[in-house]
Design a protein around this nucleic acid. Structure first.
Length: 465
RNA sequence: GGCGACGUGGCGGAGUGGCUACGCAGCGGUCUGCAAAACCGUGUACACCAGUUCGAUUCUGGUCGUCGCCUCCA
């Protein structure tokens, strides 16, 4: 049982798919500037979704595009005095790194707009042939008046859209709400040849054309941030329905909520973006994923570094609880809860609550049953794409360790040997009641990932888990 | 201005017509070095005002407030 909120019908719907082969398209980034937390949310949240579809034994075809040509890229690259391709490549690499560090599944297809120019041109022709677009002085435009279902997805009224459009420049459009399929190149702008003239594709057409080329005329899920509903997805839908009027372009539209900073949406126009890779480097992919798991994917989510630290604390608690276990779906009760939560529009915060309830109750259970629970929790987190690997900065390198132990006059050979000597030094301080020194030693050691736990007198243990 | 969403304890965040969500922080305790960690215990919160109801945080209406979209945006 999987219920999901469909933005098109604006209601929770039971997901019913005619085939086990499922097609998913996720609107990827325009590679104009470094990925921020919001990009992270979208990719992780839909990664949970795709992994869950796979868990349900669907055979998923997953495509996520890269918009590597658009007005912003042109402007930014000329500001930086580099080619638009250079900028797009550079930013694409940053996204690639983020996806990989967040352990997001690689898409089966990752089309770039500039690699599908021919298909885009063919697609525009199809729309022109149906008289739903026209060529004007500045480009080729979609004729919204010819498409009766326009604005059905976003639920807007035409007047609102018109009042919102900028009146400047493109006055060669038939109607202000018409949008560009192909923009003719101005002096110095990159361009591709087309039958209408040199230019580049509009923002929305690439998705329609690439979906059509790669996944086909109909797909099951179309995902993206809810800020894309209008105009991007609205226009995409219009184009696709114009080109293929008898096809049901998308069965379920899924949209994630935005990241907020102190209650305000984080966005480029607000200038309050937080760079994703900085936080991944510091906290690691698992903690970032867990942070995103804490909110239901459609709700707005608060972001602050404190919340990231809190996520780290909470996640470590779970990791500590299940350490030394292998994943296995043994505890049927918890598996049922898992499916219940995920089936309820991917209610991951509820899932976390249920898991903690189980952990809290488990102290009363005997070891065997508790181990079943641990294995199941690990299984669930593995299913959702958690690795339980340390963040890179927390990995212990020999060099780092040697450096650290050198401060105490210990020559590092192995971690066991060094720790043995280290403990002797520290215990001496404790015996001498030089607790401040002992505490500094313990705290500084924790910073390089080794935890000392003092027990009774002369009793201690350490680990680098 | 139009359309939409939301308003839960210090923070984050689920949920329900009547029964502890959960996590973090805090507080109390055990242990201890009047420490850290660990462990145990601990919180009658649901914007406001009416209405429906035996009973509403949960349903209905209104008020106030916040946020989003309407312009590039995940």
């Amino acid at each position: 049982m999987l219920n999901l909120y469909n933005s098109f019908t604006k209601s929770l719907e039971k997901v019913e798919l005619s085939s086990d082969d499922v097609k998913v398209y996720l609107c990827g980034p325009t590679v104009q500037s470094s990925p921020h937390i919001g990009h992270g949310r979208s990719s992780v949240v839909f990664d949970f979704f795709i992994r869950y579809l796979k868990y349900l034994n669907y055979n998923v075809s997953f495509a996520r595009n890269i918009t590597d040509i658009d007005d912003k890229i042109i402007i930014k690259s000329s500001e930086q005095n580099i080619g638009f391709k250079e900028l797009a490549n550079k930013i694409s690499k940053e996204f690639e790194q983020a996806y990989s560090n967040l352990n997001c599944l690689s898409p089966d297809f990752e089309p770039k707009a500039t690699e599908y120019i021919d298909e885009i041109i063919v697609y525009i022709k199809q729309i022109l042939d149906k008289d739903m677009a026209y060529v004007s002085e500045s480009g080729v435009y979609f004729n919204t008046a010819a498409f009766t279902d326009y604005l059905k997805l976003s639920g807007r009224k035409l007047e609102e859209v018109i009042s919102g459009t900028r009146v400047d420049i493109q006055d060669d459009k038939k109607a202000p709400e018409d949008f560009a399929l192909w923009k003719f190149a101005k002096e110095g702008e990159p361009y591709w040849e087309s039958t209408w003239g040199k230019g580049r594709p509009g923002w929305h057409i690439e998705c329609s054309a690439m979906i059509n080329t790669i996944l086909g005329e109909e797909i099951d899920f179309h995902c993206g941030g809810n800020d894309l509903i209008f105009p991007h997805h609205e226009n995409e839908l219009a184009q696709s329905k114009a080109a293929y009027p008898n096809k049901n372009f998308v069965k379920y539209w899924l949209h994630n909520g935005m990241i907020n900073l102190s209650g305000k949406k984080m966005s480029k126009s607000e200038g309050n973006v937080k760079i994703l890779n900085d936080y991944i480097d510091e906290y690691g992919g698992d903690v970032m994923r867990f942070y995103f798991l804490r909110a239901q994917y459609r709700s707005p989510q608060e972001f602050s570094e404190d919340l990231l630290i809190e996520s780290q604390t909470t996640f470590n608690k779970i990791a500590e609880f299940i350490k030394d276990t292998k994943p296995g779906p043994i505890d049927k009760n918890l598996i049922n809860l898992f499916e219940e939560c995920m089936g309820d529009d991917l209610n991951t915060p509820k899932l976390i609550g249920e898991i903690f309830l189980q952990i809290n109750n488990s102290t009363k259970l005997d070891h065997l049953i508790q181990n079943d629970l641990k294995a199941t929790i690990r299984y669930i987190f593995h299913t959702l794409g958690f690795t339980f690997l340390k963040a890179e900065t927390e990995q212990l390198s020999d060099e780092k360790l040697a450096n650290y132990f050198d401060n105490y006059g210990i020559i590092f050979e192995s971690i066991e040997q060094a720790m043995n000597e280290y403990i002797i030094i520290r215990e001496q301080h404790r015996t001498n009641e030089e607790y401040e020194i002992a505490d500094v030693m313990r705290d500084s050691l924790l910073k390089i990932g080794i935890k000392i736990e003092d027990g009774k007198k002369d009793d201690w243990s350490w680990n680098n888990n």
